[in-house]
């Protein structure tokens, strides 16, 4: 194309071409393929430039906006990936479940001996009749030193064979030492005798059965504890847990 051709294209597009030249221009467009192609490309170039520069600010604003939306969209998509559960989270979760499970077990599972075996401190020494042995037995029992306590009780009972109180604590000591057979025999003896330690012996026998995990025997003993007994409430509580 000659320079003049481009000048004609521009004049035509800006509607500055005189009428008679317009006729000639359109005639040539129809007849000259290369001319037509050049004009079309010129028009494309013009459209491209117009959009690029006339709308420069607008285009910039659009691209900035697009960039913002795009970034926030893809950051959101990546976020869950970054927060993907790390392997060590699983061990923490398992530990948490175990801890929770432990407490649930404590609450709902079968009760254990140690939950209920809270023996009160005993006081065996009586005014005026201070005995060295009694003192030692009392101290050992209260200090939960059941092995020594049991030895002292055995020695004391040899001296005072009808003392049911000493026998009761001896039996408790034996339970603590897992000597159930001997302990239970002593409890039964106390229960079968008319004594103030009768109900106490029932409760301790129940605890012995609990420690032996003999639920049936434990429940039988517990149910024999009367309402007026000191340990009635505790006994009922244990019954509920065992049921």
């Amino acid at each position: 194309m000659q320079e003049q051709d481009y000048i004609t294209f521009e004049a035509y597009l800006s509607r500055a071409l005189p009428l008679e030249e317009q006729m000639a221009f359109q005639k040539r467009l129809q007849e000259d393929e290369a001319y037509k192609l050049a004009f079309e490309t010129y028009k494309e170039a013009s459209g491209f430039l117009e959009h690029n520069f006339k709308n420069e600010e607008k285009n910039k604003a659009f691209k900035a906006n697009l960039e913002k939306v795009s970034k926030s969209y893809f950051n959101k998509q990546e976020a869950p990936k970054a927060k993907r559960i790390q392997p060590w989270y699983y061990s923490v979760a398992i530990a948490a479940i175990l801890v929770i499970g432990f407490f649930i077990k404590q609450q709902f599972s079968s009760p254990v001996y140690s939950d209920f075996a809270n023996y009160e401190t005993i006081s065996l020494t009586v005014r005026g009749t201070q005995s060295n042995m009694l003192n030692k037995a009392e101290t050992a029992f209260n200090a939960k030193n059941y092995k020594d306590a049991e030895a002292y009780f055995t020695a004391l009972i040899k001296l005072d064979s009808n003392n049911l109180e000493l026998q009761l604590y001896q039996a408790v000591s034996l339970v603590e030492l897992d000597a159930f057979k001997e302990a239970d025999a002593i409890f039964m003896k106390i229960i079968n005798s008319p004594s103030v330690y009768n109900n106490k012996a029932k409760w301790y026998l129940a605890l012995s059965k609990l420690k032996q995990e003999d639920t049936n025997a434990c429940l039988n003993v517990l149910q024999s504890i009367p309402e007026d007994a000191d340990d009635y409430k505790q006994a009922q509580k244990l019954i509920k847990k065992l049921d």
Binding site: M1, E10, A45
Partner: peptide, 26 residues
Amino acid sequence: ARKKKSLCIGKLTKMVQESPAYNNLK
């Protein structure tokens, strides 16, 4: 300015038409 505008767009037109990529587009 008017003449130069036509010639510059004309130059762009020519360059585009002469590029190898142009034929693929047509």
